[in-house]
Amino acid sequence: MQPLPYPDRERALWIYRQMVRIREFEERVKRTFTEHPGMIRGHTHLGDGAEATIVGAIAAIRPDDYVLATYRCHGYLIALGSSPRAMMAEIYGKATGLSHGLAGSMHLADPEHQFLGTSGIVGQGIPHATGVALAIQVRGGDQVVLCFFGDGASKQGAFHESLNIASLWKLPVVYILENNLYQAVTRVEMEDANAAAGEPLSTKARAYSMPGVTIDGTDPIAVLTTVANAVERARRGEGPTLIESVFYRFSAHGNIIVPPPVPLHFEEHEALTIYKCADEYEQWRQRDPIPRFRAWLRGIGVSEDELVAIESAAREEMDDAVRFALESPWPEPDILQRYVYA
């Protein structure tokens, strides 16, 4: 679907469909830990709560623009049109996965859909996105790069070095700082000087002489509008923007970190397990971007039937992805040497 800068009815429904697809996918990933124990190994991170930011931002770009993100990566690929079957199969370590099981949940990549991948190391994908923007500039193109990362990443040297160069060279990149208020388990005001001082994290943009804005990351229209402006600015050759999108993740940072044979699972969010702030968690639950945007769509005249159809289609699609991944074969070790050197 051709993205438009501002959502007409069709575009708004596209946004809703992608948000629901992401939520349904993430819920199935999470349920896998109990329904198919042992199927998902290592560490998995979910984007439930981030849907408005992910989809609102991607709705603002063209099909030939690029997206790079973090290990919490499932949602971007879904919004960009990747196959949920191939994604789930990768998360299950199957031969039919995007990388035939070589990579796993943290390292989904789909260059055919302009998603160049992630780094599993906090903040280290930011220079990659910046380098893609450099390539666009060297070639004289007018594409733009969306670079997603978390609040924790904004304390990495990679973030600061990249923003300095991007602003210095006026590179076509939009930095989207997803502030979900927790670094991993540490609350943002315990590790961020701006947050501790009661200032937004977008204050950091000032140090690099670029625009910095903070937006409600639970509202896809606010995200779309802001990102579209930043994208157009970047396309005009005027350089990068730092957008702090504030929202909440509803799941824990990741599944529990334990060695086998202890079964993996997701605990409740750190607000409940560590900080005992049930109120905070409940307040953010009230701002869940999906029911909120659903109500907005009803308000502009979208019928209940139309929304229910989107929701049931997403459920069926993601059930199918799980079935496909479960039934897929395991990879053969012969691929291990094939992808060492190009």
Binding site: L116, G117, Q124, P127, H128, G131, L134, G157, A158, S162
Partner: peptide, 14 residues
């Protein structure tokens, strides 16, 4: 970090 990381990114697209 940015010099090498940006090279990685630029190389990803050719």
């Amino acid at each position: 970090t940015a010099e090498i990381g940006m090279a990685v990114g630029a190389a990803m697209v050719g």
